[in-house]
Amino acid sequence: MKIAQAGTIESNDALVIVSPSDKLIVEIDSIVFDKFGDAINQVIVDTLKEHQITCKVVVKDKGAYDYTIKARLITALRRAQNE
């Protein structure tokens, strides 16, 4: 695994950056952190579990819905492993 990213910092989107790590690390920077910080964290943790991957995830969120964050993470993970 290497560093990879997906998404953008446009409105309703999220930029997700993944990098190798032995421990699960999730860093969230969100314009709706107070209200949805927990929800965003949950999506990240669940998606990583589904893919059985442990790594570091940095999220810059501009009000993306859960499915968008999930999609961006999936893309970033695939890019980290493929390319």
């Binding site: 949805f36 927990d38 929800a39 819905y65």
Partner: peptide, 9 residues
């Protein structure tokens, strides 16, 4: 339904 579970202030 769109936004999901929200923590109100």
């Amino acid at each position: 339904n769109l936004v999901g579970k929200e923590k109100r202030l």
